[in-house]
Design a protein around this nucleic acid. Structure first.
Lengths: 206, 206
DNA sequence: TCCCATAAGTGACAAATGTCATTTTATGGT
DNA sequence: ACCATAAAATGACATTTGTCACTTATGGGA
């Protein structure tokens, strides 16, 4: 497997080269230190895998990734990150990077490279832990799990639409006090404090 | 690396065993053919990685995964799937499976196993292609269109998280009255009436 | 019929919220 | 230092909101 390494910390880059070349199946074609290098070197060597840091001067790893994959849709790019900057996960995925792992996890970079080389996508465990919260809740009209009645759920939808009690009452032909009582009951069931939290709950769970 | 293979198609299971044992670093401790087997065999052998089919009789791979990880939070489970059943991806992720790959991709299973063994999470390319659509619309930090200041936007996020004024004040080291004034200004700018509408606005626009 | 459960409403109350005018505090620029 | 300006706070006030105890329908079963 032929790879190119791009990292603005030359020491890290060299360490990576040394570690990875211990694996005889890996050949480091070239090294670069920023996103522009990455683009140039990718064009030049067309490596099987491009191993690149995210945080770099001039052009960061994400932009470089987008740039390269725009032209070479089959490019295999494995991004390296420190644990602090995990906010880029989404973009990394959307741009089509084949992996996103911690550079601290030295010994696992080689297996990750192999997996990527074989057509898989790899995420570090710490990265993976962030994913569930990024996933859409699938449409879930099933409010039964919360012991909510139809009317209660109807009120919740009104609340989540920004109506006040008077307006909800008018819409449902209820007294305003009744609506308040309903909301009280709903808040208790869902263990929430006020209508704003209820609205938030709605958008997060339904 | 010691693994256990579970697949209800004995032929596939055997093929896997043969293929994987060609890699001398892999040792197959046991084989099973359904989710119940998986749970029993996991307890019995505590393999480094459990390689399991998703579709099985008796108990499917997902439920088995949940079951096992509930008890062994550090369990490494790599799920195998056929091309058709990609609707399980989300659950696989949520349950904490360390991978989800096509069993057709024979030659890439071994690298995937190694990556998982080394603490990574692995997805097949075909699986990965489904992920972007499952990801939440990312935070749109571009609130400039609404003439909102940074602080105002920060407050909006707190409101949309269900905090009351006192809590927001504490978080931002403001007086409670200040927060109220801020919210007043925000509501005017966005032509909204109250914090609940503001929370709704946030979820609809950001 | 009576009883009981549920749905809806009322009234009173404290707390939180939104508005506004005004004051105090910081802060940058000359 | 000074001023101008923005940022933060204050206090007063009306309104909305949430809670609670209680009342009033309503509609089945027994």
């Amino acid at each position: 497997m032929k790879i190119v390494i791009v990292d603005d910390d030359k020491l890290v880059a060299l360490s990576l080269k040394t570690i990875l070349e211990a694996d005889k199946s890996i050949e480091v074609l070239a090294m670069g230190e920023n996103g522009e290098d990455a683009i140039k070197l990718y064009e030049e060597h067309l490596p099987d895998v491009l191993l690149m840091d995210i945080r770099m001067d001039k052009m960061n790893g994400l932009d470089a990734t987008k740039n390269i994959i725009d032209k070479h849709t089959d490019a295999k790019i494995l991004l390296l990150t420190t644990f602090s900057d995990d906010e880029y996960i989404i973009k990394a995925i959307q741009y089509g990077a084949k992996g996103y792992i911690l550079k601290q996890a030295f010994e696992s970079i080689s297996p990750a490279l192999n997996a990527v080389y074989n057509g898989q996508t790899v995420f570090g465990d710490e990265i993976m832990n962030k994913i569930p919260s990024l996933i859409k809740k699938q449409e879930n009209e099933d409010y039964s799990q919360y012991n909510l009645t139809d009317k209660e759920f109807e009120i919740i939808k009104y609340v989540a639409d920004g109506l006040n009690n008077k307006e909800i009452a008018a819409n449902m032909f209820f007294g305003e006090g009744t609506v308040r009582n309903y909301i009280s009951a709903i808040l208790e069931k869902l263990e929430l404090r006020d209508r704003t939290q209820l609205a938030c709950f709605y958008y997060k769970h339904f």
